[in-house]
Nucleic acid binder design. Sequence first.
DNA 1: ATGCCGTGGAAACCACGA
Length: 257
Amino acid sequence: MKIATYNVNGVNGRLPILLRWLGEKKPDVVCLQELKAPQEKFPEQEILDAGYHAIWHGQKSWNGVAILARDKKPEEVRRVLPGDPDDTHSRYIEASVKGILIGCLYLPNGNPAPGPKFDYKLRWFERLTEHAAGLIKSGKPAVLTGDYNVMPTDLDVYKPEKWVNDALFKPEVREAFKKLVGQGWTDALRTLHPNEKIYTFWDYFRDAYGRNAGLRIDHFLLSPSLKGHLKAAGVDRDVRGWEKTSDHAPVWIELAG
DNA sequence: ATGCCGTGGAAACCACGA
């Protein structure tokens, strides 16, 4: 089974790109972030026509997450990350697909740091970590994937020294990621490719993609029971080179069975 | 060192992103 995550940066503006990619790669399950569309403006019919059932949590202008699956509609488990009833951002949706719990997340960017946005990021990270602990404890096969807005190590940044004070790379954020993974999760891409430069995002500016000035910020975390099923993992890097593309590239894993 | 590009929404500019 192939599971992918893709920060589309506007699901309607990017629909031709999304449909082309779905048609070419045919992942079984897809997590989308940054829909930038209200609930009623999600292109459900076009996605159905492409062979995917979807659940989504939209929001006007910003954020928004979705889970797509071939053949069968994802069984929604929740569409809010627990722990803060006042959080109005659409950044989390969770579903059961073929016996696997899929958590699709869009972790806050957090810039500028320090500041209220950075505080929100750290709080959101804590809530995610608390929820993730429950998933581990449940023993269910689970995948937590999406745009984490964190480069876990120096290897995940084209020029680490330029990013040390950025909300995506500040020590406390890297520490938060480490703490989460330390619960027993497997960082799928890094585990299969321990020494490779792997990027999932390239800025639109300064020909970042051409210079390969990228960041690895979209991640796949696998619960202990899924670790042994991990067969392959990678980035559909070429998609970032398409016309009118997102600044992220799709990331995927292949699980046995 | 930098929002230089790109999106959505509102209003011909703004917020936001990483």
